[in-house]
Simulated assay, not measured.
Amino acid sequence: MPRPLYDRIDRAILDHLQHHGRTPNVDLAEAVRLSPSSCLRRTKALEADGVIAGYRAALDRARLGLQLTVFLSLKVDHSTTTSHVVEAALADMPHVVACHLVSGDADFLLELAVPDLATYERVLGDVLGIGPVRDARGTISIRTVVDRGPLPLDAWPTARD
């Protein structure tokens, strides 16, 4: 069960790790002004609470040949199993890098990373082949302005320091 509130030291650890995820514990401890053992204990607690969900490398899509980012809005026919069917099918599609259940004009919003228009056309066909999907509208990204930046921890509720 997560702790209800975190303090400024937890926030400092999280902020540092968002910018420098490969920081060794000794260097992290120094950056947040803790002993290495105390810093490691807090970091492990943040991991156990699920606040730190994992660590990953940030990859350059263009250098990997994924030249196009497409946002795809889906409308689906509704039933008791619709979301599960759509979610399971999308989870198996490697070009789907994010999927959100949304409110508004669409039911799902997908982010696709594809190398070219031909691949997008194939992926779009696969998505339209998912039974409950009744409409798909794509928007191609011209340029990414902000990409997976650190979360705004200033707005996060903390314990009184």
Score class of each variant (00 low, 15 high):
111 E>L: 10
90 L>I: 08
103 S>D: 11
89 A>I: 03
16 H>Y: 07
51 V>P: 00
111 E>Y: 02
61 R>M: 07
34 L>C: 10
74 L>D: 01
80 T>M: 03
17 L>I: 08
115 P>H: 09
94 P>D: 15
42 R>E: 05
71 F>N: 06
83 S>K: 15
99 C>T: 12
153 L>Q: 04
30 E>R: 13
103 S>R: 08
16 H>F: 10
141 S>Y: 03
85 V>M: 04
97 V>T: 15
34 L>Y: 08
141 S>H: 03
40 L>F: 09
100 H>Q: 12
128 L>M: 12
58 A>H: 11
15 D>M: 09
106 A>S: 13
70 V>P: 06
92 D>Y: 02
10 D>P: 02
160 R>W: 12
16 H>N: 06
27 D>W: 09
56 R>E: 15
17 L>C: 03
147 D>N: 08
124 L>P: 00
121 E>A: 12
98 A>W: 00
130 I>R: 05
18 Q>Y: 13
9 I>P: 00
99 C>G: 05
4 P>M: 06
6 Y>V: 03
131 G>F: 07
61 R>H: 08
122 R>I: 11
3 R>F: 06
86 V>A: 11
2 P>M: 12
66 L>Y: 15
55 Y>T: 11
148 R>T: 13
147 D>A: 09
61 R>F: 14
79 S>Q: 09
67 Q>V: 02
73 S>D: 15
77 D>V: 14
39 C>T: 01
88 A>V: 04
75 K>Q: 12
110 L>Y: 05
30 E>I: 09
67 Q>W: 14
117 L>R: 11
7 D>G: 05
89 A>Y: 00
129 G>M: 05
98 A>G: 14
34 L>P: 00
102 V>P: 01
8 R>W: 08
75 K>G: 13
104 G>I: 02
108 F>N: 01
18 Q>S: 07
102 V>I: 14
44 K>P: 00
63 R>G: 01
113 A>S: 14
7 D>A: 03
45 A>L: 10
54 G>T: 10
99 C>K: 04
145 V>H: 11
110 L>I: 11
140 I>F: 15
99 C>Q: 11
124 L>I: 03
16 H>K: 00
39 C>M: 04
153 L>F: 09
117 L>K: 06
19 H>F: 04
46 L>F: 12
138 G>T: 07
78 H>D: 13
160 R>C: 14
46 L>I: 12
55 Y>Q: 10
155 A>M: 11
136 A>G: 04
143 R>M: 14
60 D>R: 15
120 Y>I: 07
23 T>C: 07
98 A>S: 15
77 D>Q: 12
48 A>T: 12
12 A>T: 05
19 H>V: 02
31 A>M: 08
87 E>F: 05
130 I>D: 05
80 T>H: 10
107 D>Y: 06
127 V>T: 03
160 R>Y: 14
13 I>P: 00
30 E>N: 10
135 D>T: 05
119 T>A: 02
84 H>D: 13
25 N>D: 13
9 I>Y: 08
142 I>E: 11
148 R>Q: 15
28 L>K: 06
61 R>A: 10
118 A>F: 14
40 L>V: 04
20 H>I: 01
71 F>R: 00
57 A>L: 14
23 T>V: 08
54 G>M: 11
146 V>W: 09
154 D>W: 11
81 T>W: 09
151 L>H: 09
73 S>M: 13
